[in-house]
Write a protein that binds this DNA or RNA. Structure first.
Lengths: 213, 213
DNA sequence: TAGATTGTTAATCGATTAACAATC
DNA sequence: TAGATTGTTAATCGATTAACAATC
């Protein structure tokens, strides 16, 4: 789909934000918007918006601007929200449960089909309609159901132990909430990290250095 | 503390990662490391590491490299982990509870002192040793205890309503888990976003486009 | 047609990498 | 001293911004 062979990660990371803003505009029944207006709204430059969008195709119309609904749909489909990535979650403690409950899998192109935790006391309970079982079942489960995405909500060492197995079982994408840094020898696997501690430390730095500037 | 007036956000966001790797090295009783070795370990260039560190000072020694413990301490103190940012959390649902429980506030320079939620059924319960009360108390609480950081784990509209009040009450830093995009008129307030939906969409894109390349 | 705004090429800016003199 | 590796300046690369011809 991409017009250019390589779209930079900076551009990709801006797409969800465009998607969000366009959704809001749609709710306000704004049907049409120019790159200049959108830029003002989002605190970007009109140039950047046009450059970003033109990585994927010409979605606008000269003299008119962009159709909000159409552009939102295009970006959504670029992001793959019409997919149905079969997803398992490893670790259903506080964080895992919150992630499974909080995130709108279906609207974002995912489907939670399996949940695993070493703690036997929660085996048999359900998160988002999925029954939690022991990690011993992961291999079998993957062979039968071929999930492509794994959400890791487990400690660093547990993650370190399980990642290469998961790749072997066919997992292609990791949403990694663990402290473990996944090192990829494998070309065809991607990792999206959510390092909460890193984010919090960045906040600490920025709060600490506030008044000095 | 910064040697340069402005340290770019790219550099700042790499600091926690350095901090993490140096911690691991310390555990392995590695006392000394060169930028070349660290670069190899972290998948960076030695140049970048030296450039990054020299934004803050010359922590190394020619012909020797860097002392791991010392460098880690320096980075920690740059990040502000020796601070004690007084922090409140707004919204103690699944996500808020998980964040409060999961994150190691003390080790990262924060202290949770207040927790608020509109749901009366959880008033009086505790998260991380802090009793949850009604948001009606926030103003009084801030006047008495002067927290500087607020963690937002509430829906978009609730966040939209409360942010400017919180700034008025003296909040300087937001750790924003809500969908709401905080717009800053205020110069001396910082926002660190954790947009889980954005992260998940990025993962979707990257998984979707895996084989094509 | 005239006005507006895109898509795209060119210019600028900032960040990363390379090179090397300083020095432990 | 010789070897190693830093701190820092210069070169390169990529991303953002500006400009403008194409066109609705």
């Amino acid at each position: 789909m991409p017009k250019n062979d390589k779209v930079s990660i900076s551009v990709i990371r801006r797409l969800p934000r465009y998607y969000r803003y366009l959704g809001e505009l749609l709710q306000k029944e704004v049907n049409r918007i120019s790159s200049r207006e959108l830029a003002q709204l989002m605190n970007l430059t009109a140039s950047q918006i046009r450059q970003d969008l033109n990585c994927f195709g010409g979605f606008g119309q000269q003299g008119y601007g962009y159709n909000v609904a159409m552009l939102r749909d295009e970006i959504g489909s670029i992001l793959g929200i019409n997919n149905n990535h079969k997803t398992i979650i490893i670790g259903v403690g506080n964080l895992g449960k919150a992630v499974a409950t909080y995130v709108n899998f279906e609207k974002l192109g995912f489907e939670l089909i399996g949940a695993f935790d070493i703690d036997p006391s929660i085996h048999g309970t359900a998160v988002r309609g999925v029954t939690v079982t022991t990690p011993d079942n992961i291999k079998d489960f993957c062979e039968k159901n071929s999930p492509s995405v794994a959400i890791l909500c487990i400690p660093r060492l547990a993650a370190k132990e399980i990642v290469s197995d998961l790749i072997e079982y066919g997992i292609k994408g990791f949403w990694n909430f663990s402290q473990y840094e996944i090192r990829l020898e494998h070309e065809d696997v991607v990792v999206e990290n959510v390092h909460l501690a890193d984010s919090m430390m960045t906040l600490s730095y920025r709060v600490s250095t506030l008044k000095q500037s």
